[in-house]
């Protein structure tokens, strides 16, 4: 029933993107996000879109699989678009009682909608091409300089990797419980809002119970293997920058530069 949730899932492969250092990928995405908000005209936005499409193509993740992950966020995108469209003041082009659409609203909606989709596409490419372990290693290393200011780099990274690790498990568990309750006549998609919320009780109670139990077991298993936080921990695979990372870095700089130029030109 829930087989479609692919948030944060790794897609095995051997593309250039798979081989990049996770730190490079994380930084590149930050740069992409910044560029996305620097860009303020349609041509720039089109350019960002082209980059995004190129990245998806290079990753060699099947398009079908990629879009399945995006399906989940359609609702959020539509909500944002609707809010922008109806809430932005300006030249009214269409009106029906208290609802009105403005020229500025349409522009804003298109911009925000596209930005949101691109943002999510590019971050999902990050998780699709990076194993959770590499990802958290990367984050940990990037956060290390901030440890001096009290940022618990290792702990944050560990929490994130555990969370990523358990998404599929929880999805599977939810699916199982949903099926079991559906077999007892429960329906999760009919009725009004109150009924729908009520219908979640038979799902959430068992789910929380098992999640807590799992957390408990995991803690015991970690302790049994002498886990005691990040101090003095070494890695099996130390992160190493290569020529590919340098190339990626240069491309990123070009991207920001292009974004800034497109803004000043318009």
């Amino acid at each position: 029933m829930l087989g479609d949730i692919t948030i944060g899932q790794y897609y095995p492969g051997d593309s250039v993107l798979h081989k990049l250092d996770p730190r490079t990928k994380i930084l590149a995405i930050l740069v992409y996000m910044v560029s996305l908000f620097i860009v303020n005209n349609f041509y720039g936005l089109l350019g960002m879109m082209a980059i995004s499409i190129l990245v998806v193509a290079v990753s060699k993740v099947p398009v079908k699989y990629f879009f399945r992950g995006l399906k989940m966020i359609i609702f959020i995108v539509l909500l944002t678009v609707a809010l922008q469209m109806f809430m932005t003041p300006g030249d009214v082009v269409w009106q029906w009682s208290f609802l009105k659409i403005t020229k500025e609203g349409i522009k804003q909606a298109v911009f925000m909608g596209t930005r949101l989709v691109l943002l999510i596409s590019i971050t999902s490419i990050l998780t699709l091409t990076t194993t959770p372990i590499a990802l958290t290693d990367g984050i940990e290393r990037l956060l290390k300089p901030f440890q001096r200011f009290g940022v618990p780099a290792h702990e944050l990274a560990m929490m994130m990797s555990i969370a990523l690790r358990f998404i599929p498990t929880l999805v599977e568990e939810t699916d199982k419980i949903m099926k079991a309750q559906a077999a007892r006549g429960a329906s999760f998609d009919t009725g009004n809002l109150i009924e729908k919320v009520k219908a979640l009780v038979p799902l959430l109670v068992p789910l929380f119970l098992s999640a807590f139990q799992r957390a408990d077991e995991l803690a015991i298993a970690m302790e049994a293997r002498c886990y005691h936080g990040g101090t003095n921990r070494t890695r099996l695979k130390a992160l190493q920058y290569t020529g590919k990372d340098l190339a990626a870095g240069i491309l990123c700089i070009c991207m920001v530069a292009a974004a800034i130029i497109s803004r000043t030109v318009s």
Binding site: A180, A183, P206
Partner: peptide, 17 residues
């Protein structure tokens, strides 16, 4: 139909709530 065909899943005790 689901009423006609009762399925008891593997480890059904986890569905109690």
């Amino acid at each position: 139909l689901r009423m006609q065909v009762g399925i008891v899943f593997q480890y059904p005790e986890y569905q109690l709530f």
